[in-house]
Nucleic acid binder design. Structure first.
Lengths: 217, 217
DNA sequence: GACTATGGACAGTAGAGCTATCCGTACCGG
DNA sequence: CCGGTACGGATAGCTCTACTGTCCATAGTC
């Protein structure tokens, strides 16, 4: 198919498709003549992924390109590719330019919890810095209430990750698997956040007795 | 204190403070003369919250303003204020302009799970649309793997919310409580996402036997 | 052969989030 | 009370992101 059809079928404007091609998010089409090209279902698929990562996952164009590059690299271990999606989540706090008191305390706290659960994680995992940064921010803001929930979050996310990884193991095709994992990881953040809000509304209703303004349905 | 000290103590430039004042994120200082004002620890606190919500929580300036307005409104029920923070998370997918097949299927799926767990949530909760949007996106992208994890996410988030709400119940001061809840909710998303990444690395290591490139320490 | 579509290059745009400048007044040390 | 710095308020400007529009020469299409 040509670019017009790709645009119609994906709902993405031709101008934007050209932009994604320029920025390296979308591979070039197959040349049919020195200045003509044709695209296939792979391009359509990729385009839909791009929009999902940007619109739903909230990634920037650059972050999306990097994630997709990791997906495309067949030499990258599966969860290394996933790791590339790590640094791409919602705003990572400032890097440890000069670790202040809060940062140090936060790092110690995380390390203790991780050791306690026996997790094997690398310090290079951007998620590590991200977690420490959030913890440090919360400590700076006052009481360590969020910090006290860290154990809870780790316990529940361990179960979540266990099942997510298990679901991946029983697969064949590497390319499709990686795609699914990356999308699941990035979109999963948004889904989990939304589900958390729903759960909070339900629980607050039960525990605080506050009535919802409009029942669903 | 005057604006210079506020700037020094918060690490936010005077220009940015003026900007936040203009945009209504930060209340005006107390007038000491027709064109002079003084700020207190409340302003400093608020300023730190603003930076946390923007830098760590990833909220936009406008979203931050709205969340803070809800925090300041003493008539708003506690978890109604929290609900205001809902629409502010990472990128909500397109509103249901014209509910296509995927959207309808996603909505049905969510409704079934919610009914199954007996959650009481309102359709006005922006998190509802957000969840449906993510689910629909995943369905459009291909297999419904993420969708199959929905039950897992709901089960685990129910436990998380249960404990978060319980932690809030045992409090007194409304203003501080709301602040803590909002910060905990928004920053919690980032923390949970980071912890999920760490857990995924650990579990993938155990289940897939992929060695981390650099062990922590 | 007229007409539309295309690839490629590049300039332009809109919005977000600041940042800089200016002005007239206020505070502060000497 | 005088010079210098700080302040508040208003407005203009800047940087970055994510497109969008225009142009041109060539390709495909009826």
């Amino acid at each position: 198919m040509r670019v017009g059809e790709l645009s119609r079928r994906s709902g993405v404007s031709v101008a934007s498709i050209k932009y994604y091609l320029r920025e390296g998010l979308l591979p070039a089409g197959e040349r049919t003549s020195p200045n003509q090209a044709s695209y296939d279902d792979g391009h359509l698929r990729r385009l839909r992924m791009i929009r999902a990562l940007i619109d739903v996952g909230g990634l920037s164009v650059v972050a999306t390109r990097d994630v997709l590059a990791a997906v495309d690299d067949p030499d990258l271990p599966l969860f290394e590719a996933l790791g590339r999606a790590s640094g791409t989540t919602t705003a990572a706090p400032v890097p440890p330019e000069e670790p202040d008191e809060a940062w140090t305390a936060a790092a110690r706290m995380l390390a203790e919890h991780v050791d306690e659960r026996g997790w094997q994680v690398s310090a290079e995992n951007p998620a590590w810095h991200s977690a420490v940064g959030v913890l440090a921010t919360y400590l700076r803001l006052g009481d360590g209430d969020l910090a006290r929930q860290l154990g809870l979050y780790m316990r529940t996310m361990e179960e979540v990750a266990e099942r997510e990884v298990a679901a991946v193991v029983e697969r064949g095709d590497r390319a499709r698997t990686v795609e699914g994992v990356v999308v699941g990881t990035v979109l999963g953040d948004t889904l989990i956040a939304a589900v958390r809000r729903l759960a909070q509304q339900d629980r607050s209703l039960r525990l605080l007795g506050e009535a919802p303004t409009h029942p669903r349905g």
